[in-house]
Nucleic acid binder design. Structure first.
Lengths: 197, 197
DNA sequence: TCGTGACGCGAGCGATTACTCGCATACAAT
DNA sequence: ATTGTATGCGAGTAATCGCTCGCGTCACGA
């Protein structure tokens, strides 16, 4: 941030810019994400962008951060809500919540996951992964009977990265697999892994 | 390809260009992947690039295609080599091969996986995924006793995408997990999933 | 040996684009 | 009302970069 918006209209403009940034990404992709395009979409002048944002990347960053935060919040909430339930049922609920969160703005997910060249986006995504991983790890530590795996931290790492990719790819690629089926398979994957054979 | 190189020196130049492209990606990242930089690195003139390549993207494409082909070839070979072995042992071998293939040029993997904005790269990666997925799916069809999952195609999709992400992230992020351990956990993940509980 | 086309060069063109700057306007405090 | 400041404008700048084009050089076939 270059300057703090003091008056109401300027605070509103900052919001308009972020909303326009998101809109450009969704409707025209990252290639069209130029400062002039964002400004035009926001209905303001290019120069005005730089009143409150130091550069183009910082606008993008806010859009991406907010998006991943939405997803992380949704998953963390679902995890917290179903901590009491027995293993498989909990996995089902959380997987469902993750897929729903990713489906909420599938186009933006595609752009964020496949078009952005920024390392910044990866950083934020890893932050959310770490957050979820720690929740899962803590759960496994508290309930050792839920897992036969030797290291809870490793188990959490495995589960989170496996499920994350499966959910993202199912939402993005739309393979011919029913939503219920993929959730059931994810549940079986985690249950089988933790339960051993 | 714009023109077919006929003389020996021109065929050599094409190779020099591709090698330089790869080198630039590895040593300076995608941001530095400009036509002039590639030409300079290859020790040739910018204009000469366009004798045989229609545009910058086509150079990048060849570098990326070759890289993924190396990885796919390695995994497919390992799969073929260990088709006879019993479940867990086969998973171990293939996971090891995949990780080795990704470790072979970790820097390039990072650039290809995290910096390239081109959809083309994703296409190629999906082609390799499909190839491996079909091999796994065929194996599961031939040996129904190896799996308790209802749909072999779905099971193959799950396994390939889960393992792929775990291997890539382990190589790229270098989490504090031993190589042997992560392979063992991958084996347990697949075995548990296919074996049911 | 000679002629012809393949080859290679590199300055520079054209287009894009992130970002600036001087000025006009709206607002708030006194 | 007046003044100082925050806000907003948009034409313009500077730099980058993909790509071209005209020209010189080299290799090969006859």
């Amino acid at each position: 941030m270059r300057k703090e918006p003091r008056q109401a209209r300027s605070r509103e403009m900052v919001e308009r810019i972020v909303a326009a940034g998101r809109q450009v990404l969704v409707e025209r992709g990252y290639d069209a994400f130029s400062t002039n395009q964002v400004a035009t979409t926001a209905g303001i002048s290019p120069g005005s962008l730089y009143q409150y944002f130091p550069d183009k990347a910082s606008i993008l960053e806010i859009v991406v951060d907010r998006y991943w935060d939405e997803v992380a919040e949704s998953v963390a909430a679902s995890l917290a809500d179903h901590l009491g339930e027995v293993g498989p049922q909990m996995v089902r609920q959380v997987a469902d919540a993750l897929i729903s969160a990713l489906e909420a703005d599938r186009t933006l997910l595609g752009v964020v996951a496949e078009q952005l060249p920024l390392a910044r986006s990866r950083e934020r995504r890893r932050a959310l992964e770490r957050r979820v991983r720690e929740l899962v790890g803590a759960y496994l530590v508290v309930r050792p009977d839920a897992s036969t795996r030797p290291d809870p931290g490793v188990a959490a790492w495995m589960i989170v990265l496996a499920i994350e990719n499966l959910a993202m790819r199912w939402v993005l690629d739309r393979p011919p697999i029913d939503r219920d089926v993929v959730i059931e398979e994810m549940t079986a994957l985690v249950a089988g892994y933790l339960g051993g054979v």
